[in-house]
């Protein structure tokens, strides 16, 4: 930061870059296209939504005239608080069940299944992703409805029918199912890298299989578990299809509420935009945690 640098030294880099292509050209070429894409389709729309969120009670065709934070004030009504709470509950629940179901599967494919079968097994878990999520939700309706596949089976073996559809359990089942392939892939990638000699070393030092699992396998795959859990959490927080089709009237979530403000009966774009900003804030918070945690696990 010295001001006494001879001017010849200062101008030297410029003279140097005259001969070759300018230093900023490389980054521009590499980052430009995706930057343009993100700018046009993410940053600008987000800013537009933010602007809309500052207009109270705006309907299609109205003139946009930002006037304050009234829309955000609306959110503090208990009914909307409960919607946010329910969205978080579904997201946490889905994360929990996806982990609970996905970890054993990923563990088995990565560590126990014969090597030559691994890719096929993974493929079979990713296969549902090839169908539309809408279709998958309809399939769950067929299974879960009062006279559906599940209840017919339960009746057959003499168990009273379960009333799951149009309530929270159906939403959690549908969302966990949708998220399973993602979490299996992320956990598999993490477990596959697990150094098996560490498992042997732990056994050698006196750890029984359960202790090996809790003291070595879980800590060693923690970065993968965190990454997978956050991926599921973020995706399910904004999920619209499963709560809409499987949840019924009682399972109002943020995503459904936003939908209603823009396309549904209520038609209040300002409030819908404010809710969108809340959702973006919650998701960003989760991503910030992911980045922070991801970096720390790399240091260790």
């Amino acid at each position: 930061m010295s001001t006494q640098v001879p001017s010849s030294l200062v101008t030297q880099p410029d003279a140097h870059s005259d001969k070759e292509s300018p230093r900023w050209l490389g980054p521009l070429v590499l980052l430009g296209p995706s930057g343009l894409w993100l700018g046009l389709l993410l940053v600008i729309p987000t800013l537009l939504i933010f602007e809309l969120s500052l207009v109270p009670g705006i309907r299609p065709g109205d003139i946009v005239n930002p006037s304050g934070l009234d829309n955000y004030g609306l959110i503090f009504q208990p009914v909307y608080f409960r919607v946010i709470g329910r969205s978080l509950f579904f997201a946490f629940g889905t994360t929990f069940f996806a982990l609970l179901l996905g970890f054993p599967v990923a563990y088995w494919i990565a560590l126990i299944a014969p090597k030559q079968w691994r890719n096929l097994l993974l493929l079979s878990f990713v296969l549902p992703l090839w169908t539309s999520s809408l279709l998958r939700s309809y399939a769950w309706i067929t299974i879960l409805r009062p006279t559906g596949v599940l209840n017919s089976f339960l009746q057959l073996i003499g168990i009273p029918p379960l009333d799951l559809l149009n309530r929270s359990p159906a939403v959690l089942i549908g969302m966990s199912y949708s998220m399973l392939p993602y979490i299996v892939l992320v956990l598999y990638a993490s477990l596959e890298k697990l150094d098996r000699r560490l498992l042997e070393a732990a056994a050698d030092l006196g750890a029984n299989p359960l202790q090996v699992f809790w003291k070595v396998t879980i800590p060693q795959s923690l970065p993968g578990i965190v990454a997978g859990a956050l991926l599921v959490f973020i995706t399910s927080l904004g999920d619209f299809v499963d709560p809409e089709l499987l949840g019924g009237a009682s399972s109002m979530t943020l995503a459904r509420l936003i939908y209603n403000q823009f396309i549904g009966a209520t038609q209040n774009w300002g409030f819908g935009s404010a809710l969108s900003m809340i959702l973006i804030f919650l998701v960003s918070l989760a991503i910030a945690l992911l980045i922070k945690y991801g970096d720390r696990s790399q240091v260790v």
């Binding site: 560490l198 042997e200 050698d204 006196g206 800590p219």
Partner: peptide
């Protein structure tokens, strides 16, 4: 099973637990 045998092994590439400090590695057993 290995965890009940009165032997301990020094592994070829050490197999130290990377998520634990030196102290915790040694205290493990």
């Amino acid at each position: 099973p290995p965890y009940r045998r009165p032997v301990n092994t020094v592994f070829q590439s050490y197999a130290l637990f990377s998520h634990m400090t030196v102290w915790d590695n040694i205290a493990f057993g």
